[in-house]
Amino acid sequence: MTIIQIKKIEDCFDGSMIYEIIFNSPVTRPLLDYFAGLGALQYYNFTRPFYKITVLGKYELQGILNESQLKIILARDNPLQFLEEFKIKFKNWQ
């Protein structure tokens, strides 16, 4: 499983650092459990389950289980460093 694209996205606030990360296959439960180990997981058990993982002071991951993309909301201090850190963590899972 690899990251095939990282796209910067905007919200309503100046200075927000949000990216969409697109993988070549869906975020499955084992991967979500691995991500959950990086921080605190909130899991909403809807028909299409929503997850949010907060890695305090660094970033937040949001997405839908079994979809191939997630959103990463980076802390304003050193955001690109935290993005790189997430990429390394993801690589370590494989």
Partner: peptide, 9 residues
């Protein structure tokens, strides 16, 4: 987050 949940879930 509510907006994403409504749309994606």
């Amino acid at each position: 987050q509510t907006g994403i949940m409504l749309e994606r879930s």
